[in-house]
Amino acid sequence: MIKAEANPKTLNCPKCAAVLPTPGLGDSGMMACPNCGTDVRVVVFPALFRDEANPVVAESVMGDGEASCFFHAGKKAVHPCSGCGRFLCSLCDLEIGSEHLCASCVESGRKKGTMHQIESKRFLAAYFCQSLGILCLLLFCVPLGFIALPTQIVVWAMNRKKPQSLVRKRAWVGYAVGMTLSSLSILIFIAMIIAGAWND
């Protein structure tokens, strides 16, 4: 649940939205909301008292020797874009991690999936393969593995070079487990057919 802030310099009770008493910096300990009595605790950091009323303003080019922004000819360049090298003014400069980028390079990186700093979603192909393998083994009486194994191979081939989870490593484990379980379910199914034929 995300709430937009009416007043960024106060901490509010999550239940009644009343302004909570803050202890300066630090931890208030458990206390009761002065309005609704709910038990709340606040931890305050210096950023709460920071003045944000300093909008970014691009300086104008003052003389012939100064470089101007690629996108705004009248504005002074402050950084070259780390991606394409174009000169950027303060308005166009997007600082992401340790890099200074222009909007088009950010958009290009977002589309290619090469900028993990701004990614908001990733498909977990390895986890999908692993889940499919578990499902095959659970439903080993149904020959699901014959469809699942080729599917897993295609998914692996399509995604093997793509980045997986931002936080969990070793994606190959998911692929390996998934394909092993699917293969196992196929073997179990074949063994059941052979055993049935043998008994008949």
Partner: peptide
């Protein structure tokens, strides 16, 4: 700080830059 929400077969990310965190509120 990275909040990772796993939904189905995808992960959704939300970032809270340490310099921007103003406080924590804990409600019992």
């Amino acid at each position: 700080i990275l909040k990772v929400t796993m939904a189905g077969y995808s992960e959704e990310y939300r970032r809270f830059y340490l310099a921007d965190v103003r406080g924590f509120v804990i409600q019992r």
